[in-house]
Each structure stands twice: as structure tokens, then as C-alpha cells.
Simulated assay, not measured.
Amino acid sequence: MTEPTTGQAEPDRPDPYLEHRRLLFATAYRMLGSVADAEDVLQDAWLSWHRADRSAVRDPRAYLVRTVTNLALNRLTSARAQRETYVGPWLPEPLLTSPDAAEETEMADSVSTAMLVVLETLNPVERAVFVLREVFGFGHAEIAEALDRPEPAVRQIAHRAREHVRARRPRHDTDAGHRAEVTSRFIEACAGGDLTAVMELLAPDVTCWSDGGGRVTAARRPLYGPDHVGRWILGVLAKPQTRGVVLERAGINGELGLLMMLGGTPMGAMTYDVVDGRIRTLRLQVNPDKLSGVRG
């Protein structure tokens, strides 16, 4: 069953599910780090909404957020068990974003790949509380009702999660101009196969993570150091199966990133943290099962 174009709402009012779908997807994606799983959760949420007794729903927005949050919690718990056998590093699914949109600009940090990686270190309930409280500004009482937990417990969880994230949130340059300059130089260096130029753009303590999920060739452990990382990146771009790949700028997870394009099709997505004008952490998503969010 597909989502409706119209719902059971009054003729002069939009269906609440459609009205809040953007918020619901944003919640599910930040909870799960997966575009496909977030869409599945929204489909299940719509089914629940479609079957609900609307007359008993006092606050449709709260009801829908509660439904999505609990569906995401259930899926996240099972997903964590599956990730224990995941081949190589696990990275979130990249998502094309529009930095010009005011709402996305305000919440860009919360959807960045770096932040999603940090959120993976929270347990599912901590993650739900953090997303609802710190990203979307829900009150402790609202979250307590959504999760069916005492409000004092939610306050403790919120404090613990906030401190956990604060301690692990990576430092990065916030100047968009510097990031754009580094990105342009990186594209040029990679296109020319210039190892020296690539290495000059990498921080001395650079780390590179790549996620192939066992579906395509990728480093199964993080790579460290400019020489190792630079040689590996240029090696990937020189492989027969990637020959002809070009790097294109794109808004990915709220910030400027790169798509590896081959014949107009994304073959991979790069996100990175720029610190003091150099790339310190680079994340390469090449698992074809996790690129739906950058295919438009």
C-alpha cells in the first residue's frame, strides 16, 4: 500500500500525516542513519495513522512523532544486531540536502555524517531522547509521553545523551568559503592523480573510513595518515571499474561534499571534516545498497 495523496482530514485542511511528513522523515533518518529504513518506518507510520481512530487523537503531530519514534526504536534495536556481522566499517546512508533551505541550514549539524556517526554510540533510547529534545526541541514531558517513560527519567537520559554527544562531537571549520576552497583543490588534485597535492590537503592525523558492506571493494579497516589515505584514494579512482569517475560537488547531509559520478550515476559519496584548512576525517560510502539518498 502506498502513501495517500489525500487523507481522511477535513476538505479544507491538509492530512496531518502529509503536513508533518518532513518532520517525520527527519526524525526517522536521524534515529536510524538510513534513508531506506526511514522510508519504511514512514510507510508503517502511515498505515498506523490510516487505521487509527482519528476522533481519539488529540494532537496528530504528537501522535505521529510518537508512532515514528517507537517504530524507529524497534528497527534500530534489530539493526544493531545485524551490524555486528556487517562487513567492514558501517557508515550512515548519505542524503542529498539543500543548504539554501532555512530549516535544513538550522539543523545541518544534526544531520551531518559526523553527527550521525556519534549518534551511533548512543543506545536506542538515548538516541531517541537526544533527537527529539536537542534537534526538534520537544519538551521533556512530550518525550516522556512519546516513550512511555517517567519525565524525571527522560530528563536524566537527555542530560546523559547531551554530555555524551558533546564529548564526542568532532571539531571542524565552519567557514563555508574555506570548505569550498579545500573541496575545489581536492577535486583538482584527484583528477590529476597528483599524490603530493592530495597529501597537502590531508591533516597529519587524517583518518579515512570506507563502507562497501561487502558488496564492493572497500577498506575493511580505517586508514590513517596522509600518505596511506592519499595513495588509497587515488588507487580507488584508478581502478578499471571506476575509471572515468569524476568528483562532483553536492550538498550531502547539510554540508558540501562530493559525489563519485560515473555516466551520470552516483557510485559513491564523500563527506569530510575540514579542520584548519585540511581534511581530518574522510568518509566514503560506496555500498550500492546505501546510495538511494543521493540518486535523486
Rank of each mutant, 00 (worst) to 15 (best):
V68G: 07
L18K: 05
D194Y: 06
G254I: 05
P60H: 14
G33F: 00
R243A: 14
P11N: 10
T265E: 14
P226H: 08
T281H: 12
E145D: 15
D100E: 14
L223W: 00
D44I: 02
M115S: 11
D194V: 00
A269W: 03
D276A: 12
V198G: 02
D227T: 11
F186M: 08
E120P: 03
W209H: 13
M261W: 05
T67A: 14
G235F: 11
G33E: 03
L71F: 15
L122T: 04
A108G: 03
V294A: 02
R133W: 08
C208F: 15
T265I: 07
A191H: 14
L284F: 15
P11F: 12
T27R: 06
H164N: 12
P124L: 00
L234H: 10
T271L: 12
R185N: 10
F25V: 03
G212R: 10
V125Q: 07
A101V: 15
L73T: 07
R295Y: 05
L195D: 01
R30C: 00
S55R: 12
R249G: 05
V206R: 04
R249V: 05
P99N: 10
L32Q: 07
L96T: 07
H164L: 14
V57P: 01
H172M: 11
E134K: 14
G212C: 07
P11L: 12
T207P: 03
A114T: 10
V275P: 02
L291T: 00
D40S: 12
V57C: 08
G225E: 06
A81K: 12
P124W: 03
V117L: 15
